[in-house]
Simulated scan of single mutants.
Amino acid sequence: MSATATAAGLIVPMAEDSHFPPTPGDFWQPLFAIPGTDYYFTRPMLLLAIATVVLMAWLWLTTRRAAIVPSKSQWVTEQVYNFARNGVARDMIGSKDFLPFVPFIFSLFTFILLNNLFGIIPPFQNPTMARVGFPIALTLIVYVVYHWVGIRKQGGVGKYLGSLLPGGLPGWIKPFILLLELITFFITRPLTLALRLFGNMFAGHMLLVVFIIGGWYLFKTYDPALMAVAIPAWILGVALTAFEGLVQFLQAYVFALLAASYIGGALADEH
């Protein structure tokens, strides 16, 4: 039984073959093999598809009859959009250049947020971004966008790379600074962007699973003392679930914020 399914032990009866403590291998949840290949369609892939459909339906249903005086659903959508537009894109990219990138930043924020929240929403209870391949894919998109923007802004690859160097540097130190800048822009930024999101979602979900499953294992010992300890473990699990919801929002916000920051830096006259 998977760790995610086991974490739902308070809602769905637990199987006898569930185990404790959970391991990273529990996040591998294949649903079926793709015919003729060695690849599998996994539960996180299904959740990713569900998130895409839910977001499409949400945007269509709340904007199909858009009016100057908005309905409640339209107002909610507008608040989320305005948060991404004004609180992220305009603040980080600048009021001059931000508008073309608002749909991209809005899409990143809402898509990551919903997939993160799947970690605490029954019956999903699996944050998609806890599988490292998904944050890497999103990071690659951001990576291509901000480098493409910078190359177009500077008028070519050579000029773009040259713009990474601050002005006024002695000639002998420029190769060293350029090397550091190349490592930062082409390796460190994408690596930390992906791993930050993955690490927080993975660690948070593992923590919830530990408290919920751990409480169950204590409870089913039928030792009165250990059963008494299980109750605080479950209470703490509920509290951590609320805290995890905050972390999931913050990680979506930080990812969108950094993506906008990188785009803003690429558009700046000087890096």
Rank of each mutant, 00 (worst) to 15 (best):
F32L: 13
F32S: 12
A33H: 09
A33D: 12
T37R: 05
D38N: 15
Y39Q: 15
Y40P: 06
T42K: 05
R43D: 06
P44F: 04
P44Y: 05
P44A: 02
L48M: 12
A49T: 07
A49H: 03
A49C: 09
I50N: 12
A51H: 03
T52W: 07
L55E: 11
W58E: 11
W60H: 05
T62F: 00
T63A: 06
T63I: 04
R64D: 03
R64K: 13
R65V: 06
S71F: 04
S73I: 13
Q74R: 03
Q74M: 01
Q74L: 02
W75S: 14
T77V: 14
E78Y: 07
Q79F: 04
N86S: 09
G87T: 13
V88Y: 04
V88P: 06
R90Y: 03
D91G: 04
M92L: 14
M92E: 14
G94F: 04
K96E: 14
K96V: 15
F98C: 06
L99V: 10
P100V: 04
P100A: 03
P100R: 02
F101A: 01
F101D: 00
V102N: 03
F104C: 07
T110L: 12
L113H: 12
N115A: 10
N115K: 12
L117N: 13
F118Y: 05
G119D: 05
I121S: 05
I121A: 08
I121N: 13
P123S: 00
F124I: 08
P127Y: 03
T128E: 05
T128G: 01
V132Q: 10
G133M: 11
F134I: 12
P135F: 11
P135A: 06
A137T: 10
L138Y: 13
L138S: 11
I141F: 14
I141Q: 08
I141K: 06
V142C: 00
V142A: 01
V144Y: 15
W148H: 14
W148S: 15
V149E: 05
V149L: 10
R152V: 15
R152Q: 15
K153S: 08
K153D: 07
Q154I: 07
K159V: 09
K159G: 07
K159L: 13
L161N: 02
S163H: 08
S163V: 11
L164N: 10
L164H: 13
L165S: 02
G167R: 12
G168V: 01
G168D: 00
L169F: 04
G171Y: 02
W172D: 10
W172L: 12
P175E: 03
P175S: 02
F176P: 02
